[in-house]
Amino acid sequence: MAEEIYQQRDTPLIMGILNVTPDSFSDGGQFNDPKKAVAHALEMVSQGADIIDVGGESTRPGAEAVDTDEQLSRVIPVISALREALPEGFPISIDTTDAEVARLSVIAGVNWLNDISAAEDSPEMLTLAARHDLPLVLMHRKGKSATMQNDPYYDDVCTEVFAYLEGRAEQALNAGVAADKIVLDPGIGFGKRFEDNLQLLANMAELCAKPYPVLLGTSRKRFLSMICQVDQSNQLGVATAATTALAVRSGVRIVRVHDVLENRQAADVAWAIHSA
């Protein structure tokens, strides 16, 4: 059903973020308890989320890696509880670069894979996606989370990022991942300067013209804080929705957000105008 929802829906998809971590940049520690996590997920679904993305490792700038066992202890109880609470087949995504975490999450009920390393950290992620015929998000990241914001540099950020993603898509195809299951993510904020993020957003149509759907994650990110001069990331729902509307007009098919209601509305309005 994960792929059926994507294929049957013409309107953009909203991926709701469910971090079960103590240290994520915006909502760390809020949903570690499975009951709280399920309640929040159900709230996001009621507001229009099409996919719930569960993560057990913070990937904010400066974050240290979390080992396999710790990630599993965080995500598996939540995924199992979500699988019971959500309708049969409802898309649940695991946000991890660890293929073993992904494998056991699939057994627990996950049916999307979201890998911010584009399967470079664990090449087995490609095999897992191919074996189970699962959608796989491949994201661009320059460096590791702990160091990615230590003076990143590009000669031409759009050319470099888009070429990298095409290369990773080719690797996925070679590993047996179906072309219609590959999703590309430019990795806003992941080893990018302020101006790099803006350039990527301004040129999303170029990436969307390639033969793969695009996922965009700008939710509550620091470059929005800098533009809006807002210190608290949870006050950036409207700013995020502005990027969602612009992205949808450019052809982005999936947006990954904390604030589902605002972004559902922004996506639907932008799509209506785009389709007129």
Rank of each mutant, 00 (worst) to 15 (best):
P211A: 13
R253T: 04
P61S: 13
R249C: 12
L261E: 14
N174K: 13
W112P: 02
D185I: 05
A118W: 04
Q199N: 11
E170Y: 11
G28Q: 09
H140L: 04
F90R: 01
S58P: 09
G56E: 01
E43T: 15
P22K: 14
V78F: 07
A108N: 06
I5T: 12
V269Q: 11
H40E: 09
A172H: 01
I116P: 01
A241E: 08
L42D: 06
V230D: 03
D121S: 08
G62Y: 03
V238T: 15
E100F: 01
N197K: 09
D53I: 02
N234D: 15
M1Q: 14
I76W: 00
Q149M: 10
D69I: 13
V260H: 05
F190I: 02
N203P: 13
V183S: 03
I188T: 02
V75K: 06
A241S: 13
D53M: 04
G109V: 00
D98F: 01
G48A: 15
D10V: 11
A49Y: 08
I76S: 00
A163L: 13
Q47E: 14
A266G: 14
I79Q: 04
K35W: 12
I116Q: 06
L86P: 07
I92A: 06
M148H: 06
R83E: 08
A65F: 07
N234E: 15
V238I: 15
L86I: 11
T147C: 12
A49H: 07
Q8N: 12
V260K: 00
S233W: 10
G191R: 03
H258C: 04
E88H: 14
R249K: 13
A272Q: 14
D155R: 12
A146P: 10
Q30R: 14
T11G: 12
V214A: 02
A146G: 12
F90M: 08
E124C: 12
M226C: 09
V214K: 01
I107H: 05
I92Q: 03
P123Y: 05
A63D: 03
A267W: 07
V260C: 02
E160L: 05
L224P: 02
T243V: 05
D98A: 07
P135E: 07
Y164F: 15
P77Y: 03
P135I: 03
S117A: 15
V161G: 01
S219K: 04
A118K: 00
R9I: 06
